[in-house]
């Protein structure tokens, strides 16, 4: 029977179907995107900006940006969730930097949330059980390592900025960052290509 196979294939193609519909600008696809990832996007942005009203504005900006740029995503192999989170984080960090009068660099955002980069990713990395593992891994880090991770991921500080903020020599901070990233990688089983 063709039908069962057809059905199974379509289940696996969940993301692909959504991406194709976003690219066709099917309004329901935007609604579905929001229903699937709205909370995740909001939680991440709120974690960065710590203000609910600003967070909602930035969520809106994030979804509009994705809605308008979905053409760049690979319909076959694209990963819409990770891309959405990257755009969300960049929006939030950009806000934080401008609010703090820190240097803003639009180019680096363009290159780190470019939709073409978000393909061939592991499916299911945003599933709640994985998320719990990430949280546990972060909590297992020693306080100084955890702090550098938070400053990098959630405040968008470079290593020089961290050194200044933490009142530590740059070399020390670099070592902490390296060690923290390594243990996070190991803990999450993220394979690094050699």
């Amino acid at each position: 029977m063709l039908l069962p196979i057809l059905l199974a294939i379509q289940a696996i193609r969940g993301d692909r179907d959504l991406i194709e519909r976003l690219q066709r600008r099917d309004p329901q696809a935007l609604a579905e995107l929001y229903d699937r990832f709205g909370r995740l996007v909001y939680s991440l942005i709120l974690r960065v900006v710590r203000d609910t009203a600003i967070a909602e504005d930035l969520v809106q900006e994030t979804f509009l940006r994705v809605w308008n740029r979905s053409q760049g995503l690979d319909a076959e192999r694209g990963s819409v969730g990770p891309w959405l989170l990257a755009v969300a984080r960049n929006r939030a960090i950009d806000y934080l930097r401008s609010a703090a009068g820190r240097e803003r660099n639009a180019v680096e955002f363009e290159e780190t949330d470019h939709p073409a980069l978000f393909c061939d990713m592991e499916p299911d990395i945003l599933r709640s059980d994985k998320t719990r593992r990430v949280r546990a891994a972060m909590e297992k880090l020693a306080p100084n390592y955890r702090e550098v991770m938070h400053l990098a991921y959630f405040e968008g500080l470079s290593q020089s900025e961290m050194a200044k903020r933490m009142g530590q020599p740059l070399g020390t901070v670099k070592t902490w960052v390296r060690t923290a990233l390594k243990s996070l990688r190991d803990e999450l089983g993220v394979a690094v290509t050699s």
Binding site: L40, L46, R47, A86, L184
Partner: peptide, 21 residues
């Protein structure tokens, strides 16, 4: 390597405490 890193960034980002808009 960068794709793997983006994957990890997404995972870390998804671990923010859940909040409801």
């Amino acid at each position: 390597g960068v794709k793997k890193a983006l994957e990890m960034a997404a995972m870390v980002g998804s671990a923010a405490d859940a909040a409801q808009p």
